[in-house]
């Protein structure tokens, strides 16, 4: 019973809050205020949005809690990889100690951690992608018909047109690259954006009318 009440409550919250914020969006487009009505909506909407921002930030904490609990369990159950989990938690706790002891993210300690540990690691992980993209370029492209031909052709022109080297190969290359990006790609992306917008609206509406309830278990 209480569970059902919980579900209904969640659905009601999503619908009411969503409609209020949506109303705020449209009301703020109106020129006049209808006797303070629009102002009430505006204030309410703004308040709800600001609360949501805080809850979203807190939700990140939950993700972190998950990471910690996974690795803590792994250590306790002595599963393979315990040592790595230990290192993970150690570096986490170390970062926390440095951060809180030295007084926040702008403190000297946190800056050191960011500049010399976090930034190089994170950046290098993503740098590895380039190498694998190169490998994929070799394996993935097979021209079978006109369509794949165009795909590869456009990709190659843009690739070469983007770097100064392309000019040596063919002076017109950068110009053609610009044309590709400004005309056919613009058209294609705009069509995609319209579709995305429609999809977003439909998905959002489903949440606002309670047809979709991704927040329930």
């Amino acid at each position: 019973m209480s569970i059902r009440i919980g579900r209904v409550l969640a659905t009601v919250v999503a619908i009411v809050v969503g409609l209020l914020v949506l109303a705020d969006l449209f009301v703020s487009q109106w020129p006049n205020s209808f006797g303070g009505f629009s102002q009430i909506i505006n204030v309410t909407g703004a308040l709800l949005v600001s609360w949501a921002a805080i809850v979203i930030a807190f939700a990140l904490f939950l993700g972190f809690a998950n990471v910690i609990s996974v690795h803590w369990t792994r250590i306790r159950s002595q599963k393979p990889g315990t040592i790595y989990s230990g290192i993970l938690l150690l570096s986490l706790v170390g970062t926390l100690i440095v951060g809180f002891y030295s007084g926040g993210p702008n403190s000297y300690g946190s800056q050191l951690v960011f500049d010399f540990v976090l930034q190089p690691l994170e950046a290098t992980f993503f740098a590895l992608l380039a190498i694998f993209i190169a490998a994929a370029a070799f394996r993935a492209f097979r021209i079978r018909d006109l369509e794949t031909f165009f795909f590869v052709l456009f990709a190659v022109i843009v690739l070469l047109g983007q770097v100064p080297l392309g000019i040596y190969l063919w002076p017109e290359l950068p110009v053609i690259k610009d044309w590709i990006l400004n005309v056919p790609t613009l058209a294609g992306v705009r069509g995609i954006l319209l579709g995305v917008a429609l999809g977003t609206i439909a998905t959002g509406l489903r949440i606002l009318i309670g047809a979709d309830r991704p927040y329930t278990d």
Binding site: I133, A134, A137, F138, F141, V156, L160, Q162, P164, L165
Partner: peptide, 21 residues
């Protein structure tokens, strides 16, 4: 470096395509 990398990738695409043929 960007130029070199792009060129290599284009060459790889070319070789890959020919291998595919």
């Amino acid at each position: 470096s960007q130029s070199v990398a792009h060129l290599i990738i284009v060459i790889l695409i070319a070789i890959g395509t020919m291998v595919g043929w």
